[in-house]
Design a protein around this nucleic acid. Structure first.
Lengths: 109, 109
DNA sequence: AATATTCATCGTAAAACGACGATAAAGGTC
DNA sequence: GACCTTTATCGTCGTTTTACGATGAATATT
């Protein structure tokens, strides 16, 4: 995704409110991605395994395949994980950059 | 809820599943507390100010007083903040221990 | 070609979230 | 006591989340 921060100089006299809010949104989104036990487990699994087929993730969780797929979609949209099609299977892996950004944003609290 | 599998102390060779799940819930709860822009801003505000009356927090956010109060309640229930009654006002402050736990859990990912 | 496997998506239902206004509770002030 | 300030809670409404089964698309396998 690379929704990098574009820095521009506006002649505003109050450069305080908006940046604060925007930054809050970024952290909130990433935090929300791991704000569910199933998603935490998926993230941890992918961190430890480095690459994992969807079926394995489903087998690891006490949820229906469609539900897991939903969580995977959410994690994918957050940028924390990536999915690569491999034949009829889909191989998921962690996006280390996004994970680092999450860690940094939390650590900077 | 609690569709948790009751796993007895059987001589299982894989003591991995249950701790993983429990820990996931703890992290998910703390992450969810900061999974909303308004709550991120409240947390940041309390970190920077060290103590803050509810009214100031309300003034800082573009939300109704009742809505902010809801968010404060959520943050209080997560343990991330504490509220102390001071006359008719309520003084909120960060719970540094919980904040550290959140940081540690994220960093340990 | 027919079938099986793998995964995403659709449709749906229940629950929770997020927001608000109105009201109540608790504490000061006159 | 009457009144104002401050905050929490209640009731409500619309939206989102979470979960599931069923279906569809894409690829392997036979």
């Amino acid at each position: 995704m690379s929704t990098a921060k574009k820095r521009q100089r506006d002649c505003d006299s109050r450069p305080v409110k908006l940046p604060d809010d925007a930054g809050a949104g970024v952290l909130a989104k990433l935090a929300w991605a791991v704000a569910h036990p199933a998603r935490v487990r998926i993230v941890r699994l992918l961190i430890s395994r480095e690459a994992c087929v969807c079926g394995e993730i489903v087998a690891e969780l006490p949820l229906a395949q469609s539900t897991v797929s939903q969580h995977l979609k959410i994690l994918k949209e957050s940028g924390l994980i990536q999915g690569e099609i491999d034949g009829p299977k889909v191989c998921y892996c962690i996006n280390r950059e996004m994970l680092s950004e999450l860690k940094q944003l939390i650590a900077a609290l």
